[in-house]
Design a binder for these strands. Structure first.
Lengths: 96, 96
DNA sequence: TCGTGTTATTGCAATAAGTCAATATAAAAA
DNA sequence: TTTTTATATTGACTTATTGCAATAACACGA
């Protein structure tokens, strides 16, 4: 159950409205420092910082320090694909 | 935040080792009734039934009653794509 | 309708995740 | 070296999720 747990852990980080919002902003607008992200996703600084850290540890985003700023971006295309899939899926809606 | 919440809710259901396992079995082996699934994913009956119900409500799987059995299958290709992406992503591993 | 096989629902203790103010650390400018 | 701007970490609290036994409901054959 080792791989499954890592898969679940990564998905769980993405599975939160605010972290999804962060991911979408980074998907649309590329990389940016935390304070810019904070304008687009209005959250307490501590909260946003924690989210970004979780996302980085899960391999969803990549971080790079530039002077006193830290710039974040989506880590790779898998993440973009997952975002597209889940958005498409949830746009529709169908039960069974 | 309405769409984001629905997206997060669906991802959250998938973000669990056992539910991922269920999804993988259905991906590999197609549709099957609950008791067959129970052999492949050994869990208490109540637990498995709840997982399947959550997954159905989230639109991840589809259910169809056949006599006294209920057969489950993956709902659509988005789910398959997400499974592939997250598996690929977690197979590797890279921090930043 | 009674029994049996199959699946769903309920209730709740144990555990995990979310939230954010306060505080710490990092880098550059004054 | 003191300040200032930018980001990270800690601690304490609230809320949500998990896991499962017990019980209910559903569908069929005897």
């Amino acid at each position: 159950m080792e791989l499954l747990e890592r898969m679940a852990a990564a998905l769980k980080i993405l599975a939160h409205p605010c972290r999804l919002k962060v991911a979408e902003v980074l998907q649309r607008e590329g990389s940016m420092p935390v304070h810019t992200l904070m304008e687009k996703v209005p959250l307490p600084q501590a909260t946003l910082s924690q989210y970004l850290n979780q996302m980085r540890r899960a391999g969803l985003v990549r971080a790079e320090r530039k002077g006193k700023e830290v710039w974040y971006e989506i880590a790779d295309s898998s993440v973009l694909t997952i975002l597209d899939c889940i958005r498409r899926k949830t746009g529709q809606r169908a039960e069974s």
